[in-house]
Write a protein that binds this DNA or RNA. Structure first.
Length: 803
DNA sequence: GCCTACGCCTAG
DNA sequence: TAGGCGTAGGCC
């Protein structure tokens, strides 16, 4: 028997299955979806079995046997193996990348090289012997000097030592020491035999008699019995107990937020949505639903009800949320409703915790997964429903290889399993709403808030007028007044700082110079904590200059507004207010995000000040005011989705106010109050915005009227990057149909990163049967030839941002 | 992607 | 001519 194996080598000529002989020992045991260790050329690598067959086309002597099984049952189902094939093709990635993206990072193999001593007596060099310290196997990295490397080379040649690769599995399994205490009679006998001086031992044995026959975790035992580890060790040696390492799951910290009541009745809109989705579920139809529900309309309740039914039929559910750590409330609702049938997968978990959650799914110990993008690959085999909450979020698209969109994978899996997909949002992506309008998706509307509360009143504040009045602060008079009122009434305020593209930078007030990164074509960002300037693209760091490098003026200082600055201003304006700041700086530590939210939910603060991360999911009854400090910042980005992003953000953040009994109010500060994205966000109406934006997209030929592919080129030399980009553009023009438009090559918005010049080509097409074929041919040129000349090329289908 | 064999080159 | 460096081609 032979196994077709995809090996863990990401290279163009390797991107296909390789045949290996299955040794008799493993015969009948190897199945598709298992990982194996195989010899590949002179080294050993991990591979994924994708097929098992009786015959191989290769000559017998060309086939090596596989060496070892890493798994004893398949870790990838036939569905996921099939999916990896489609994924690799669709995203133009290697098959191995597609396979690996489906598994938790802890399962990815690490390779370590070792020096293995074969003939100890042949080694005479004192340096080399010192390095070995009497061991016959040391990591290769110990040989870290030119002398040692030279000696190593000689010894390898003579056969005295060997260098081999060890495939290291990061066995992320957590084990605890369990102490099993023996039966009482044995203990009593032992007690009698102990000498009088063995006070602590007598103490522990006496304690053990009270717990005879029990198994207790070592740490707990020591604490409860009040003895030290040495005493226990001695007694284990004397036979009073046995120790065993037992595999356990880590328990991710679950922050309990104030409970949200379970509604007893659904609104008629919710009921209709539930009925429609369940109809598709029962009929095993892979319908994609677009659940368009305004903020507070109870989309989550629709998810919960449909999942309940799916579970009752013995099937499983995947729920995707944009970045789950941002919505602890969402997870607690799922945990509340489905208890320990829920696994949670989010980026704040450690690698080990992610692995544990993955195993719980794989072993069918849970039936629901709530997680971020990668949870779409949850190894379920009886999928009954897939839900994407906030489906418009750009985090569903993976930015590095394989560049998949979770929505597309969801639809693929739904199709494979014959189950419905629900895309939920208050502000659907234009693409999705357009598909719903065309009948590709089925539209479900929730136009009313669940408890019939009114939507908050949204006030637009023209900051230009404020400036004319002489108000130079970040807070308009009306917003400041509104905050003052909340403080007096002991209600809570959320202040949102739209920070993207808005980070602080250093500017000379005299000559207008900004400090640029020496490697990249972008301004450096000011970091107050370290008093440093940092480049977000290449990591370059330098001190803040005291005089302008251009004109030597001393009037050089940081400019722009960050959360820290906002916090300072709040402290000045409202010295008595208790403020919680939530941004990358305050949430870096694990779990701090949830802790901050918990504090806020318990009323330990009056004002929550934050960036993007507070825009969604917050659902606290005492929030009655939302202030958006600067609405425009996302509006002026060089991105065709700028208006859509702004509208979505404003709608989402406004939705945080007045979700319960108290009425909400929103203040949006802007320098462009007349822009339709801002005007329509004030009115909180999606459809008119959709139509406005669609006509603009149509005019400029952007999605959803055209599909887009972005091809990025980068090279250290400007001439070469232009050259290759032009070559590629010509090639694409020849290969694609004349209806498709090729724009460029043009210099990218950030034309240099890390000392590499960047160019790009955009392909716009409506229908392009030859797309995949042509792109693959282009990639073949790149991977076989251009790459050797130092070019870097990347293809991004339906990019979410174009840099 | 990594390894090696094989090419070419230089010092002696 | 041995040893050093660089690069093309194979990996089952």
């Amino acid at each position: 028997m032979f196994a077709e194996v995809i090996v863990d080598v990401a290279a163009y000529p390797i991107d296909r299955p390789f045949d290996y002989k299955i040794p008799e020992l493993f015969e009948g045991f190897v199945e598709p979806g298992m990982r194996v260790k195989v010899p590949f050329g002179p080294r050993k690598v991990v591979g994924y079995v994708v097929d098992v067959k009786g015959e191989s086309e290769l000559a017998e002597n060309k086939i090596k046997p596989l060496e070892e099984l890493i798994d004893f049952d398949a870790i990838l189902s036939p569905e996921l193996l099939e999916l990896s094939k489609w994924l690799a093709e669709d995203t133009l990635a290697y098959r191995i990348e597609a396979l690996q993206v489906m598994l938790p990072a802890a399962m990815r193999a690490k390779y370590e090289k070792f020096i293995q001593v074969e003939q100890l007596d042949a080694i005479t060099e004192p340096d080399f012997l010192t390095m070995l310290k009497g061991r016959d196997r040391v990591p290769l990295k110990y040989a870290d000097s030119p002398i040692l490397l030279k000696q190593l080379k000689a010894y390898v040649k003579s056969g005295a030592v060997q260098v081999d690769t060890l495939v290291k599995q990061q066995t992320a399994m957590k084990k605890v020491r369990m102490i099993h205490i023996v039966k009482a009679p044995i203990l009593e006998e032992l007690l009698n035999s102990l000498s009088k001086q063995a006070v602590k031992q007598r103490e522990l044995v006496t304690w053990m008699i009270g717990h005879a026959g029990e198994s207790i975790e070592a740490g707990k035992l020591l604490k409860d019995a009040g003895v030290s580890a040495t005493v226990l060790k001695t007694l284990i040696d004397k036979g009073a107990a046995h120790e065993k390492k037992v595999e356990v799951y880590r328990e991710p910290e679950v922050v309990q937020l104030r409970e949200t009541a379970v509604p007893t009745r659904l609104t008629s809109y919710q009921q209709y949505a539930v009925d429609e989705v369940l109809h598709a579920f029962h009929k095993k139809q892979d319908t994609t639903f677009l659940l368009h529900g305004i903020t507070g309309s109870g989309k989550t309740e629709v998810y919960l009800r449909t999942i309940e039914e799916v579970l009752s039929k013995g099937q499983e559910a995947i729920v995707l949320v944009p970045e789950i750590s941002l919505t602890p409330q969402m997870t607690s609702r799922f945990k509340e409703r489905f208890g320990d049938q829920v696994a949670v997968m989010h980026s704040a978990l450690s690698a080990g915790e992610k692995y544990d959650e993955w195993r719980r799914i794989h072993r069918k110990e849970v039936k629901v997964v709530v997680g971020a993008r990668s949870a779409i690959f949850a190894p379920f085999e009886k999928l009954g429903i897939i839900i994407l909450d906030e489906e418009h979020e750009s985090t569903y698209k993976q930015e590095d290889l394989p560049r998949y969109h979770a929505r597309d994978v969801a639809i693929w899996r739904a199709n494979y399993n014959g189950c419905p997909v629900v895309l939920g949002s208050a502000t659907p992506a234009l693409e999705s709403y357009a598909r719903a309008s065309k009948g590709v998706y089925q539209l479900l509307e929730l136009p009313k808030r669940a408890k019939e509360q009114a939507l908050p009143t949204v006030n637009i504040v023209d900051m230009r007028a404020e400036l004319q009045e002489g108000n130079r602060s970040m807070f308009s008079v009306s917003l400041a007044e509104a905050i003052r009122e909340r403080l007096d009434r002991h209600e809570q305020t959320v202040l949102f700082l739209n920070k993207r593209g808005f980070s602080s930078f250093v500017l000379c007030r005299d000559c207008g110079t900004t400090i640029q990164c020496p490697n990249c074509d972008i301004s450096l960002t000011y970091h107050r904590a370290t008093e440093n300037l940092k480049c977000h693209y290449c990591g370059h760091e330098e001190r803040v200059p005291t005089i302008c490098p251009e004109c030597e003026s001393e009037h050089i200082r940081f400019f722009g507004t960050g959360t820290q600055k906002a916090e300072e201003e709040i402290a000045k304006l409202f010295p008595e207010a208790r403020v919680l700041r939530m941004d990358v700086d305050t949430t870096r530590q694990k779990g701090s995000h949830a802790r901050l939210l918990q504090k806020f939910s318990e009323g330990q603060a009056d004002i929550l000040l934050g960036t993007q991360m507070i825009a969604k999911g917050l659902d606290f009854p005492n929030i009655t005011l939302v202030g958006v400090l600067a609405a425009d910042t996302t509006l002026h980005l060089a991105d065709f989705r700028a208006a859509e992003k702004t509208f979505q953000l404003l709608t989402q953040v406004s939705g945080r106010a007045g979700r319960h009994d108290l009425a909400g109010e929103v203040f949006v500060q802007t320098y462009t109050p007349e822009h339709y994205a801002i005007e329509l966000a004030k009115a909180q109406v999606y459809e008119p915005f959709y139509h406005m934006e669609m006509s603009s997209r149509k005019q400029f030929g952007y999605p959803p009227f055209f599909y887009i592919v972005n091809i990025q080129f980068s090279h250290e030399e400007l001439m070469k990057v232009v050259d290759y980009a032009e070559k590629a553009a010509r090639f694409l023009a020849e290969g694609l149909s004349p209806e498709s438009v090729i724009i460029g090559p043009t210099a990218s918005a950030i034309s240099r990163v890390n000392n590499r010049y960047r160019y790009q080509c955009l392909i716009k097409y409506k229908k392009e049967p030859k797309l995949t074929e042509t792109l693959q041919a282009l990639i073949r040129f790149y991977r076989t030839d251009w790459i050797k000349d130092g070019l870097q090329l990347s293809v991004d289908k339906s990019p979410v941002v174009i840099y």
